[in-house]
Computed example of a mutant assay.
Amino acid sequence: MVRLREFEPYYFCDNVEKSISPPFDSISKSLESELKSFPFNITHLTLPEKESQGTMLIDKWIDSGVLKKKEEAGMILINQQSWINGRIRERFGVISLVDIYPEDGLLQPHEKTFPGKVSDRVKVLKDTNAQLEPIFLVVNNKQFDRKLILLSSKLQPWLEFTDTDSVKYKIFKIPLNDSHTISEILKTDVAIVADGHHRLAATMQMAQSSNKNDEVFWSSIMAYTTNIDSDSLLINGIHRALKCRIDNEKLNNLRSVCNSVKADSEGPKDENVLILSQEDNMIIDQEKIKKRGISAISAIHLIQNVVLKEILGLSDEELDAMIYYTHDIKECKRMIDSGESSIVFVMPPWNKEKLFNLIVKNGFLPQKSTYFFPKVCSGIVMNINR
């Protein structure tokens, strides 16, 4: 079962909009510099410039009253309002603790991690002795969504603010009885890790290496959980830009399973993959693929395992060194126009139901397969081991 539990969160008591940030791995260098101009911004902890200062900084913020602790344990309800595709959409979710042990398969990561990035997050966890950012979980449970909508209509907001992406937030403290009800609603559900795979892996390492006193703290993780059918939860693919030159023989091999098209500024509209190059633009012809005896369970498996490895003949080591990942179609086109990339594979949006079932049935997808948005900002609450 997915075990959601109450906790006693710490929170920034003033100037919330100057304290929050996007998740650490969604922040550009220019935005990081802007956020760090605020003395109490969460990025001073999540993206530290120096090691071994996190615990000291948190203690300083607690002692000075910048950070306060909610003395009563509970869960946090979040209402987000986003302007998406020409209209305002709402999403509801809960921040709570989620047990990561025992590993019974109901907390399901879907992407493999990079060891170096896990090590970086372990350093931050050790340095701060805190869980600073929630991982992002999705469940497929309409009753859960209805319960959160009902609660938001009855409760008064505890906090209201707008994040750096112009998403409006209303934050509610969930009464204890309702927290228990939410846990019961989800007790038999599978929760898929949408975002935060490296933070989850780092937290699991902390649990395995901690002494008995700290093991309890690290055996659960702060998580934001929402329903995958939410109107304002969008799931795009992450595009792949090759930074190496591809010889003509391999390019012609790729063209043999493609059709030429005009580039669509909005990217692919269905499950086809749009391929941008300096010479032409193409989409993969599924019928030509089938005639070659090639099959793949999704577009990302087709590109990662068939096109990149078999047709273009790139090894895992070459792929690690030569692929630039981005969710921004404009960035893809800029890289082609500037010559930074020879080929860009523009991945289509995911069908939510197909993605959920694919992960539950098959487990891990290739690295950098999904981009869930809008994200949940960091700094709303923290789980600090004090």
Results as ranks from 00 to 15, higher is better:
21 S>C: 03
21 S>D: 07
21 S>F: 01
29 K>V: 11
35 L>K: 09
40 F>R: 04
43 T>Y: 09
47 L>Y: 09
50 K>I: 12
63 D>V: 05
75 M>K: 13
76 I>G: 06
86 G>N: 08
93 G>L: 01
95 I>P: 00
107 L>F: 13
108 Q>R: 14
109 P>F: 12
110 H>F: 01
112 K>V: 06
122 V>H: 00
135 I>V: 10
136 F>M: 12
143 Q>R: 13
146 R>N: 14
148 L>S: 01
153 S>C: 09
157 P>A: 07
158 W>Q: 14
173 K>T: 08
186 L>I: 08
190 V>P: 14
191 A>T: 08
202 A>L: 01
209 S>G: 05
215 E>F: 02
231 D>V: 11
232 S>G: 07
240 R>T: 06
242 L>G: 02
245 R>H: 05
249 E>T: 08
252 N>W: 06
260 S>V: 11
262 K>R: 13
273 V>T: 13
274 L>W: 09
287 E>S: 14
288 K>T: 06
292 R>L: 15
294 I>L: 08
299 A>S: 13
300 I>N: 04
301 H>N: 15
320 D>K: 15
323 I>L: 03
332 C>Y: 02
335 M>R: 05
346 V>S: 06
347 M>L: 01
348 P>R: 01
354 K>R: 13
363 G>D: 12
378 S>T: 15
379 G>R: 06
381 V>T: 14
